[in-house]
């Protein structure tokens, strides 16, 4: 499973109940595991945007995109491999210590990290960046002991005039 490529799929959908289930069924039936899924409003309240990352082979991906596009409530569904700005946000909880504080300060610029909260002996570190940057930082901070972590999943938007 790990050797299969990770795909990012952007879906514009009618803002109606049940749409998420219909889309999830298309993935599940074909054995595609969803890594992350973000549902968010768009500038038009009639529509929502879903950004999905999932692992699997290209042939199945083609079937999934075509079948998601077939759903009546889906306006369009595309894979976005390039020419996009991608972001993800992570919150990590660590024990509060001078070492962590120093490490975050040192990497503040490189990894877009900062300490958001310090209470009851814990820090909450916030990071915004690409999925890759989040993975990298997570690997580095681990040696200081991470108590909990949560990530939003990737969102993306196309550059320039092209619509997402």
């Amino acid at each position: 499973m790990d050797t299969l490529p990770l795909h990012t799929i952007s879906v514009l959908v009618a803002n109606k109940p049940g749409v998420l289930v219909r889309i999830a069924l298309v993935f599940a039936r074909r054995g595609y595991n969803i890594n992350s899924l973000v549902v968010s409003p768009t500038i038009n309240p009639k529509f929502s945007r879903m950004t999905i990352t999932a692992k699997g082979d290209l042939e199945t991906l083609e079937q999934i995109i075509k079948n998601v596009n077939k759903l009546i409530d889906v306006i369009h569904c595309e894979e976005h491999p390039a020419n996009t700005v991608e972001k993800e946000l992570a919150l990590l909880k660590t024990k509060a210590s001078p070492a962590v504080k120093a490490f975050v300060a040192k990497n503040a610029r490189k990894f877009h990290v900062r300490i958001d909260d310090a209470s009851e002996g814990c820090y909450i570190i916030e990071q915004t960046g690409t999925t890759l940057e989040l993975d990298e930082f997570e690997a580095l901070i681990k040696k200081y002991g991470v108590l909990e972590m949560i990530r939003t999943g990737k969102i993306l938007i196309t550059r320039g005039q092209e619509k997402t």
Binding site: G18, V21, R22, L25, R29, L71, I72, D73
Partner: peptide, 14 residues
């Protein structure tokens, strides 16, 4: 029933 039939309908409404 709209949940049960979701994979076998072209579309459905509640």
């Amino acid at each position: 029933i709209s949940g049960i039939t979701m994979p076998v309908v072209k579309h459905s409404y509640l």
